[in-house]
Amino acid sequence: MRFHQRAAAAVAVVSLISLAACGGGTEDPGAAGPTSDVDSGEAAPPTPVSDEIVAAAEEEGSVLLYSNANEEVMAPLAAGFKKKYPNIEVRNLDLEDTQIAERYRTESATGARTADIVMTSDQLTMQDFVEAGHVLDYEDPNVPNLPDYANLAPGVVAMSEDPVIALFNKSVLPEDQQPTSMAEFAEMAPELEGKIGTLDVANAIGFLATASYVNSAGEEGWEHLEALGASAGVESGTGNLSQKLLQGAYAGSFFVSGSVRPLITGDAAKVLNYTYLVDGTPLVPRAMAITAQAPNPNAAKVFMNYALSVEGQEEACKGGFTPYRAGVECPYGLAAIEDAVGEDNVIIGGWDPELRSQREDIEARWNEAFGR
């Protein structure tokens, strides 16, 4: 799933709501949905890379990322890095998850300039990438201070743990009527027939959210999805979902990428709001790795180190990434999500080695439930 599609949708959301709000009140409702300044714990001492690596990185002069994060999402993190390391330029190329792997393979095979770092939310694509030998087996100094689930594979670490959310049109479904759990959503499905939206299981976020949810909730989770599927529309991406929610075609949706949260402010928050479902908030790891043939490996190590640090994670939060390590202040971070739904109700997982073998069965049952 492409993050620039989400950002484009968010821009459209704000623009269209601004037009719809012309002539209305000027009161700014602020941000939509649950945010929190809950204590995220004590930060571990900083663990920077060595001075020698920094010096070599400055000599290289730049780091190139192939990622599923667009410029708006990446901008605060890149700006924070540039402020700390003014002699290292950050370049980010926004690509679809599968394009990241394909482009790197082609370029590395032909000797062309290619990515120093890759970043993707598609577990299966990244697992294939690792198994093909395209990742440098490198452990950043931050890793010992991260939770175990952040270590996804040798050389691969979670940049963020992005939740899926429920997104609602408050004009169609008032806040006091909106479900707070997948169980409530499923119970309401018949009266909301045709007014519920979700992501296609073919979408990487849609598949990983579905797999995490049913692997956690079991048969009861499938029963909820089957009840919802009988009344739901299916969209290829968060952009389409956001547009249709804005227009009132949908009253509510589930398993929407949580990266839209910081964007639902001002006029957008007059119409849309989000919530975390207490029994259905899986987190999707966004994997980051240095490539095996990185032209600027030292610059890549410095960027990874900053991105995983408390300082870097706080900057990343501003763009919509979801920090998960202790000591990071972020109204959308893991601590805030746990505060909203309860620590035991957040579905956190690393990479499930069984996911590839489960995919066909999960997709088949989902497609049957949603009439695909």
Rank of each mutant, 00 (worst) to 15 (best):
Leu272Met: 06
Lys82Cys: 06
Val13Gly: 03
Asp339Cys: 07
Asn273Gln: 04
Gly312Asn: 12
Val157Leu: 01
Glu329Gly: 09
Ser171Ile: 05
Ser40Arg: 01
Ser121His: 05
Tyr149Phe: 09
Ala8Arg: 04
Ser36Thr: 06
Tyr149Thr: 02
Ala56Leu: 07
Asn87Thr: 13
Leu95Asp: 01
Asp344Glu: 15
Glu223Asn: 08
Thr281Phe: 03
Pro262Arg: 02
Trp351His: 00
Asp94Ile: 09
Thr98Ala: 08
Val14Lys: 14
Glu311Arg: 12
Asn296His: 15
Leu225Pro: 00
Asp148Cys: 01
Arg91Ala: 12
Ala269Tyr: 01
Glu329Tyr: 11
Asp51Pro: 06
Ala44Phe: 09
Asn203Gln: 09
Ser231Tyr: 05
Gly320Asn: 07
Glu314Cys: 07
Pro45Thr: 01
Lys301Asp: 02
Trp366Arg: 14
Gly327Asn: 04
Met159Cys: 05
Ser62Leu: 06
Glu220Arg: 04
Val118Ala: 11
Glu354Gln: 15
Asp37His: 12
Pro48Gly: 09
Asp94Glu: 14
Gln123Ser: 10
Leu245His: 04
Gly349Ala: 14
Gly252Phe: 00
Gly320Ser: 13
Ser108Phe: 08
Glu311Gln: 12
Gly197Val: 04
Gly239His: 01
Asp97Glu: 15
Ala232Met: 08
Met74Leu: 10
Val90Arg: 00
Leu152Ile: 03
Gly30Arg: 06
Ala336Ser: 13
Pro163Gly: 08
Ala10Phe: 04
Phe3Gly: 05
Leu199Arg: 07
Arg286Leu: 13
Ala202Cys: 10
Ala43Ser: 09
Pro147Tyr: 12
Glu89Met: 03
Gly258Lys: 07
Gly266Ile: 12
Pro323Leu: 15
Asn296Trp: 07
Phe370Cys: 02
Ser236Glu: 12
Asn169Ser: 14
Asp116Trp: 00
Met304Thr: 03
Ala211Pro: 02
Gln5Phe: 10
Cys317Lys: 00
Ser67Leu: 10
Val118Thr: 09
Gly349His: 08
Ala7Glu: 08
Asn169Val: 13
Phe303Ser: 02
Arg356Thr: 08
Gly327Tyr: 04
Asn70Lys: 05
Lys83Tyr: 07
Thr35Leu: 14
Pro331Asp: 07
Val214Ser: 10
Leu272Tyr: 00
Gly349Thr: 07
Asp51Lys: 15
Met1Trp: 00
Glu338Cys: 02
Asp344Val: 02
Arg365Glu: 06
Lys84Gly: 08
His224Val: 02
Val302Met: 05
Gly280Trp: 04
Phe185Ala: 10
Tyr85Arg: 11
Ile205Tyr: 04
Gln99Val: 06
Ala8Ser: 14
Ala57His: 15
Ala230Gly: 09
Ala166Cys: 11
Ala294Pro: 00
Gly25Gln: 05
Val284Cys: 05
Pro163Leu: 08
Ala115Leu: 06
Tyr85Ser: 06
Pro46Cys: 09
Thr265Lys: 15
Tyr104Ala: 05
Asn215Met: 13
Ala56Phe: 05
Gln313Met: 13
Asp200Trp: 05
Thr47Asn: 12
Thr238Val: 15
Ser40Val: 10
Pro174Gly: 12
Met119Pro: 00
Glu343His: 12
Ser231Asp: 10
Glu175Asn: 11
Asn296Ala: 11
